[in-house]
Structures are given as C-alpha cells and as structure tokens.
Simulated assay, not measured.
Amino acid sequence: MGWLARLRQHIPTREQIHNNPRLAWLGPWLKEPKLWHWSRRGVAMGVALGVFFGLIIPVAQIPASVAAAVVMRANIPAAIASTLVSNPVTFGPIYYGAYKLGVVVTGAKKTASPKDLLASTEVDEDAGLWTRVAALGKPLLVGLSITAVLMGLLTYGVITLIWRWRTVTKRRSRKR
C-alpha cells in the first residue's frame, strides 16, 4: 500500500463529515462535491491555500483555509493538511526569514535582531510572545505577506506540474 493510500485512510470521508452533528450548520457549503474530489486543480488550489494561510496567520489557520477553499472550490482535505507547514518546529525559522526579507524589502532600519528583541526587556517583561512578535512590526508583516503569496503560488505550480507529469507518464505506459 502506497503512502497516498495510507494517507487517505486517515482522512475522514465526506459522509462522516456530513453526519457529524457539530458540523451540521456547515452542511449547505460542505456538500459541494468539488470540495472533496481529488482533482489536479482542486488539490493544487487546496494546498496553495493551506500553505498561504499556514504562513500568513499564526492562529486559526485551518478555519481560514477551509473558508477560502469553500469560496474557491478547492479540495478541503488538502487545504487542511497543508496548513501544517507552519508548526512549532518551523514557526521560528519562518518568522525569522520573513522578518529578514521584510527588512530588505522595506529598507527598515534594523535596531535589534528579532532574537534580541524577543529576549530583551525593551518590550515589557510581562508581555506575551505575540506582543513581542508584534513589536517587530512592518518588516515582519511585509515579509510574511511576500513569503505566503510566493509559496502559495509556487506550491500551486509545482503540484500542477507533478500531477500533469504523472498523468502523461501513466498514459504513455498504458499505450505501450
């Protein structure tokens, strides 16, 4: 059994989701067949949306990606799974790289590195992590926006190309 078949075993079926009483209020939107179909466009769009929302917003990534998938008729399971690109392990490097990109793009003066700012007392000691991250300001927001858009577009293109390549390869092997 391939990895894709094993992955599909763990994804709830459309019927399981439709019969879930907690999700009954979403019924009219979630019953659209295109949202669950494994097509090239649907999966590529779902992954692109998931990566975008996984990078751009630190909380509520899954609801945002599902809402966007419903509006854009993308694959919901792919959108949900791809939000995991941002997790506790990757959060730090992603935000640090986005901040550095934002400093370059905006031309902002770097008064302190993000590492120093997050560890320093320039921001109130009682302030939470989000307050400290918000103190990084415009460079971080610009860097995250650019990173999220570029990575979303890149994943859409790569998945489309891989899907197309696999389709052509299968057709050629059937002809032989």
Rank of each mutant, 00 (worst) to 15 (best):
G2N: 15
G2I: 08
G2S: 15
W3K: 12
R6W: 11
L7E: 09
R8P: 01
Q9N: 10
Q9R: 10
I11M: 08
R14P: 01
R14Y: 02
E15M: 11
Q16L: 07
I17F: 06
H18M: 11
H18I: 05
N19R: 15
N19A: 15
N19W: 04
N20H: 14
P21I: 11
R22E: 02
L23I: 13
L26Y: 13
P28Y: 11
K31A: 05
K31F: 00
E32S: 09
P33H: 06
W36F: 03
H37D: 12
W38L: 12
W38T: 09
S39V: 05
R40N: 09
V43R: 03
V43G: 02
G46F: 02
G46E: 04
G46S: 10
V47Y: 02
G50Q: 01
V51Y: 01
F52P: 02
F53A: 04
V59M: 10
A60L: 15
V66I: 15
V66K: 07
A68D: 12
A69G: 02
V71W: 13
M72Q: 05
R73M: 03
R73D: 01
N75M: 01
P77N: 05
P77Q: 09
A79K: 01
A79N: 07
A79V: 05
I80T: 01
T83Y: 07
V85P: 08
V85Y: 08
V85R: 05
V85K: 06
V85M: 14
S86Y: 12
N87Y: 06
P88T: 07
V89P: 09
T90S: 14
T90V: 09
F91D: 06
F91E: 09
Y95M: 12
Y96N: 06
A98K: 09
K100I: 09
G102N: 00
V103Y: 01
V103L: 11
V103E: 05
V104Y: 07
T106I: 03
G107M: 00
G107P: 00
G107A: 03
K110C: 03
A112T: 05
S113G: 04
P114E: 08
P114F: 04
D116E: 15
L117P: 00
A119M: 15
S120Q: 08
T121K: 12
E122K: 06
D124I: 00
E125G: 14
E125L: 12
A127T: 02
L129N: 06
L129M: 14
V133S: 07
V133M: 12
V133D: 03
A135Q: 11
L136A: 04
L136I: 09
G137F: 01
P139G: 01
P139Y: 02
L140Y: 03
V142S: 04
V142C: 06
G143F: 05
I146K: 09
I146D: 04
I146E: 06
T147Q: 10
V149T: 14
L150V: 14
M151Q: 13
G152H: 04
G152Q: 08
G152E: 12
L154D: 13
T155Q: 11
Y156P: 02
G157E: 11
I159T: 10
I159H: 03
L161H: 09
I162Q: 10
W163Y: 14
R164F: 12
R166N: 15
V168T: 08
V168F: 07
T169I: 05
T169A: 15
T169C: 06
T169G: 07
R172K: 10
R172N: 08
S173W: 03
